[in-house]
Design a protein around this nucleic acid. Structure first.
Lengths: 212, 212
DNA sequence: ATTAAATATGGACGATCGTCCGTATATAAT
DNA sequence: ATTATATACGGACGATCGTCCATATTTAAT
């Protein structure tokens, strides 16, 4: 998910400087977006947090929309690193699905993002606003749901999950539980325990277990 | 959920006029908020849609925050009317829970709100912004979850649902499925079928059925 | 009819926003 | 050293926002 600009001439110190700037800016932008939302994220606010001119931030990304897209891409990278990659060490199917659920909950519990999962809030925030940012969010979410679905399919093929179920349906339900955990923890704070999310994820896998 | 102003002297035609104005403004505000979000809802935009001066809208509600709170209260009223009240005609327990799920999905399917359930998006949007609006959202959501929980408890008491389950846990899962349905329908449009939400809700009740 | 009160209006205010432009600075190429 | 290029900067622009104020209008009370 690198921009063309980065890829053209990686050895150019000028572009490297720009890339470092964008990189640092993105790290702050992701945190800001997790709190303020993808739309609430403002170039002005981000610049002031970075201590740079706001025109610099604008120049680094080109437009607010491009910044939003970059934030989504970065969030995707972080999610892959913290949740998906660790789960890939487990065999596909129920084991990997379990690892994905556990990884997701741990990632939320660790408060990687101050304001909760950016993608969750963004997907509800952007739903009424056509544009590149919305498409980026929808794309990542589609990827995520497909990942869940394909692992349910493998679990069915391996005889771990009942063959009668619709893989996309179970993937939908697993995702629903995870998003709800993110949501309730943000809204109710300490009053919510991630064990509820873990139990929900586990329960879905259990109750759809193949009756061997 | 009426303001003090309305309650003081209901026969006062001046206040009645104001109440009518607020009422009409709220109807438009709720639609706008469902698309733009609770924070994206602006007094200026609302006024232009109503064809009135923006200072009039401001005067009617007092502040943007008060407008947001009023929108939440109105959304709650609509939800009670369209989803909860019909379900109350069914006996408490699984029957009522089933009716709540069906009512919720139908209400989403009917696109009562252009941009999807205001409360769902608002609860994720407001989570990082302390204030009256956030508290209002959290309060309504708490009510909703409590309603689900208490019906699960009744279902357990009636022997319809396994006694080992945690009522709050199942309520969490049911709510997760409903919110996810709202969310996916907004993000993926026609590609999402509310049957997925219905099946999820039904599946949760089925798989937690008491083994009589 | 007059006075009082509640609501509606238009105009103005400062704040914040995204964007653009001329220019300064840092790095590369020659 | 000089020229070319990519990035960073400060300043300005118009647009939009929430809020306030003086005033007009509608309804109630006397």
């Amino acid at each position: 998910m690198e921009t063309d600009r980065d890829a053209v001439e990686p050895r150019d110190g000028r572009r490297a400087r720009g890339a470092r700037t964008r990189d640092a800016a993105l790290a702050a932008a992701v945190q800001l977006a997790s709190v303020e939302g993808l739309e609430g994220l403002s170039i002005a606010h981000l610049a002031s947090r970075l201590g740079t001119a706001k025109s610099s931030v604008h120049a680094a990304f080109g437009s607010k929309e491009a910044l939003q897209v970059a934030v989504v891409a970065r969030t995707r990278d972080i999610l892959i690193e913290l949740v998906i990659a660790p789960a890939l060490t487990f065999p596909g199917g129920v084991a990997r699905l379990t690892a994905l659920g556990e990884g997701w909950m741990s990632y939320l519990e660790a408060k990687t993002f101050e304001g909760g999962c950016v993608l969750s809030s963004a997907s509800l925030e952007m739903d009424g606003r056509p544009g590149a940012a919305r498409d980026a969010v929808a794309g990542v979410m589609r990827e995520w749901l497909d990942l869940l679905t394909s692992n349910v399919e493998r679990a069915v093929a391996a005889g771990e999950i009942r063959a009668e179920i619709d893989p996309a349906q179970l993937a939908f339900e697993l995702n629903a539980v995870g998003m709800a955990a993110n949501w309730q923890s943000q809204l109710f704070g300490e009053a919510f325990s991630y064990q509820t999310g873990r139990a929900g994820w586990r329960g879905l896998l259990e109750s759809n277990k193949a009756s061997s």
